[in-house]
Design a protein around this nucleic acid. Structure first.
Lengths: 214, 214
DNA sequence: GAGTGTTTTAAACGTATGTTTAAGTTTACC
DNA sequence: GGTAAACTTAAACATACGTTTAAAACACTC
């Protein structure tokens, strides 16, 4: 019964490294050590397999994200203050780099996520957006509350910039093939998160009245 | 003799909208109104066609980028001051949104560029990186000079964040399919450039001693 | 205006893809 | 221990892809 798991693991690696279209069913099943027809038997289709791969890992990430964002919102609501921007950013960014237990295979999945943000192929993107929608909506709402002096348009686009930077960071961090580019600039996940929060915090808050007055 | 141009135009649109692999030779030639075999006759292969599509538009962009960046460097060198960060950013970002004459087809090509930054398929990415390498190297050098208090690692990663944000901005701006997401937040290119420069400027400069002392 | 080199055409080639089939094997339950 | 369900297998299917071929159409020079 671990055939399904075997397939999921192999598919995760190949989808992440080669992309959805380029990862063939034959390569996936061969890497999993199972028969070609088993993907269709267990999952129905290649696209359903991708869906399963994404759902398996993304569910805990999104649950953690949502929980942390909701806590920030309710805390700000109680005390009647604006939510703290760096705190929001960290709640949004951190879970994507692993849910803590630093499981095997996270690098590959992170790579898959990083891709899907800007994926050529819309199959992966659509699935991801569907899974992320609740967290993304709450995120946008909190950003608006944290940046009350900014127009909706400004908040929206700065949020898009954040997503772009985050996606790039994830891919650079987890994808083989960037080693030569990174050379001496390697950074562990915690450092990367810190740099991202600092970068996006300054970027999003620019032009905002700082300190106190609300 | 404008068969080649016809093919290039059609390929640009389809590569941008569907991605390199998903855009088939048959779809390209059909859209161009020419025979299937003519791509191989005129360009040699599908990959060579992609190369030609990219080279045609990217050359002027990169020339403009390089010229502006070089001018910033030499100006800073003469006066023996650090180059100005927003100026650097604008020189790097602006040309990607069009070389001024706002030609037809730019939206599609911009989409193609935006994708290639994080493209699943490495074919497009490799070609793009090769074309952009000189400008990117100079950019990194100038950023280091503009942010003397930052470590090489910090500069490198903030530059990567910028690339991610820029790629996302380009795609959101030029790709159909984001219309529903953008809804009321539509922004013209000039506004987008301004927001990007402001966002990246604040993000990259954060933690840097500001004003004067050097 | 015959002849040469270039361009275009329709058809076929070889290969790879995701999926389905039908027979085989294992597993679990009464 | 027999039976039904779940699972696995090898093979074939249908389609799509990029590329090649050989003949036809065109363009241009002498």
């Amino acid at each position: 019964m671990d055939t399904k798991e075997e397939i999921l693991n192999a598919a995760e690696v190949l989808f992440a490294r080669a992309g959805y279209h380029a990862a063939s069913m034959r390569a996936i099943t061969e890497s999993a050590g199972v028969n070609l027809a088993l993907v269709n038997y267990h999952f129905g289709s290649k696209e359903a397999l991708l869906e399963a791969v994404i759902a398996r890992r993304l569910r805990p990430v999104n649950e953690l994200r949502l929980r942390r964002l909701q806590e920030i919102r309710s805390r700000a609501g109680e005390r009647n203050i604006s939510p703290d921007l760096p705190e929001i950013l960290r709640a949004y960014i951190e879970p994507v780099f692993g849910t803590g237990e630093s499981e095997r295979g996270w690098a590959d999945f992170a790579n898959l996520i990083g891709r899907a943000f800007t994926e050529t192929d819309e199959t992966a993107q659509k699935i991801l957006l569907r899974h992320m929608k609740p967290a993304n909506q709450l995120m946008l709402e909190l950003l608006g509350a944290a940046l009350p002096d900014l127009s909706g348009q400004e908040v929206f686009w700065r949020y898009q910039f954040l997503i772009g930077a985050l996606g790039r960071a994830i891919r650079m961090n987890s994808s083989p093939g960037y080693e030569r580019l990174k050379k001496n600039f390697e950074a562990d996940s915690e450092t990367l998160i810190r740099m991202l929060v600092s970068f996006a915090g300054a970027g999003m808050g620019s032009g905002e009245r700082r300190e106190g007055l609300r």
